[in-house]
């Protein structure tokens, strides 16, 4: 959480995560280069082999990155993969950058035109290198702004919008492959990999969307008599967990049933969107009396939507009331960090 900014807030989890990333990268590159024919008269050029090793490695890493989001939505078991996904993204950018640098040096260097300028000048009617260069520029923007400092400075929505550019970047990279390696007569494997990538990444996203819309989200129904929305029976909300409700024309609301530190059972509603990276708070849980985001562990008090001191994050809150067993919600959000009465369920300990 953002009490202060340091380059990397290392912990054991992040160290193991990064160790695993770079061990996989090193193994992939070593096996690719080792299995390539680099000796003898029919050897491939070493820079081209390295270029291919780096490009395929970065592409596989991008596919893993894109699959983590939907996997984590399909099963919370995959949330630890999401926790340090930014390090995987920056690592992927570094590998892609090495590929690009080598390609520019080898294919565009030593000529009569500036190598960087030549990317836009040569290459025919549809220069596939340009597609890759634009994708790399997007990945650079994402890597450069991946730190929490930029998240806090730019604000969650803008930061999130920038990082959603990974999808246009992915589309550009697929086009980079389609108009480049896939046109090469001797790379018959590339079409299959591109097709498999689109099927797996696209399929997982569709599955996640279907799974979530069908099982976890509940459209709130409005009462004809008042502006309060009748949400659910409070028994249906798991203890220390939430149900998420989609309000028409507004964002999603997470309604938590939790036991506070004194053991009383309470109902509180807050915005479903974590201020950190827009994580789904309603998929988190209440720990030590604090709503805890499933993505990076950011915490908020149910009473007022504020992170506990010394942290400064705030989220909008909602008023709720309980009539009988029914939970009712005032759909008008209160400003971020606004305290309001939290409903205690009598007799529930």
């Amino acid at each position: 959480m953002s009490h202060g900014f340091v380059a990397v807030q290392w912990n054991r989890r992040k160290l193991l995560y990064d160790l695993c990333i770079w061990a996989c990268v090193a193994l992939y590159l070593a096996l690719f280069i080792g299995a390539s024919d680099l000796a003898g008269a029919d050897a491939l050029s070493a820079p081209i082999v390295l270029m291919r090793a780096l490009s395929t490695c970065a592409f596989l890493m991008l596919n893993v990155i894109l699959c983590i989001g939907p996997l984590a939505r399909l099963s919370p078991r995959f949330l630890p993969l999401l926790y340090n996904r930014r390090h995987l993204g920056v690592s992927m950018f570094v590998v892609a950058l090495l590929h690009a640098a080598l390609a520019i040096y080898w294919y565009h260097g030593f000529g009569v035109i500036n190598p960087l300028a030549s990317i836009a000048i040569v290459g025919g009617d549809f220069p596939f290198q340009l597609l890759g260069a634009i994708a790399l520029a997007i990945l650079f923007l994402m890597a450069a702004t991946s730190h929490d400092y930029w998240n806090a400075t730019l604000g969650g929505p803008l930061w999130k919008a920038i990082h959603m550019l990974v999808y246009p970047a992915y589309a550009l990279i697929i086009a980079h492959i389609l108009f480049g390696a896939l046109q090469q007569n001797d790379t018959g494997f590339a079409p299959w990999m591109a097709m498999a990538s689109v099927c797996v990444v696209g399929g997982l996203h569709i599955l996640a969307a279907l799974f979530k819309s069908g099982a976890d989200f509940h459209a709130a129904k409005s009462s004809a008599e008042t502006s309060w929305l009748d949400l659910c029976d409070w028994h249906d909300i798991p203890i220390n967990r939430a149900q998420i409700f989609a309000l028409r024309g507004a964002e999603r609301v997470a309604v938590f049933r939790y036991r506070d530190n004194a053991g009383a059972t309470k109902i509180a509603a807050v915005s479903n969107v974590c201020q950190h990276q827009n994580g789904p708070l309603g998929e988190g849980r209440v720990m030590d009396g604090l709503i805890t985001c499933p993505w990076h562990g950011y915490q908020y008090r149910p009473e007022d939507g504020c992170s506990p001191p010394p942290f400064g994050e705030k989220i909008p809150t909602y008023r709720v009331k309980v009539e009988g067993a029914r939970v009712l919600l005032d759909p008008a959000p209160l400003p971020a960090g606004s305290p309001r009465p939290v409903v205690e369920i009598p007799g529930e300990k």
């Binding site: 590159l29 096996l31 690719f32 280069i33 082999v49 090793a53």
Partner: peptide, 10 residues
């Protein structure tokens, strides 16, 4: 990762 590197190179 090791298998993919070897397989793709081949």
């Amino acid at each position: 990762a090791a298998a993919a590197g070897h397989f793709w190179a081949m």
